[in-house]
Amino acid sequence: MRTKKQEGLMLEQAFKDDLRTILDGNKIEACLQCGTCTASCPVSYLMDYGPRKLVALCRNGMLEEVLRSNTPWMCVSCYLCTTRCPAGIRITDLLYEIKRLAKKSGINQPTNGYEVLSEKFIEQVEKYGRVNEMRLTMSLILKNLSRMFDTVPLGLKLLRKGRISLTSIIKSESIKNIKDLTQISERIKLRGSG
């Protein structure tokens, strides 16, 4: 059994290693803490820390706070912070990395349903190779993420306009070489454990 401290250290090492491999990851060391990112973020008001403080926490080695933060899970990937950052930090990519690490660490993140959406989306890709909005929405309704009642009027309207069809939910057409994607997943899982 590893102690909690040991696990913390291993995570820290994994984080450092990953930072080194993501593009310009080391630049967080040169963050000016100017706040351009947080002030540019369209959804920073939903975040506990916001990108600037999150970078500060990363630099200070306060990894547990980082991994428990809701900040990365709120990110909408609009990349405004990234293109504006005067220190050249790819903040959006850093947030992806934190999400990956949070998943790896098993530390509970306060989640806004991102997990479920992400899981359902990926499930669709792996099963069919493509994503059908109807199927995705249905699966979310089943997971209680979207309230059925709310979506009915819009759904009916879309049906009337011919923008969606009910058959696409039932008809499970996948790409020809769906086994390609299965293979890819397996290969990557194999690498991950090895």
């Binding site: 990365p72 992806y96 999400k99 992400s118 989306f121 990926i122 493509r130 790409i175 997943s185």
Partner: peptide, 20 residues
């Protein structure tokens, strides 16, 4: 036979898979 690129979701789970 194109496949969905996974939008932003794969990047949050596994960067390599997103790229592949």
């Amino acid at each position: 036979d194109w496949n969905c690129c996974g939008a932003t979701f794969y990047h949050s789970v596994d960067e390599l898979q997103a790229l592949v």
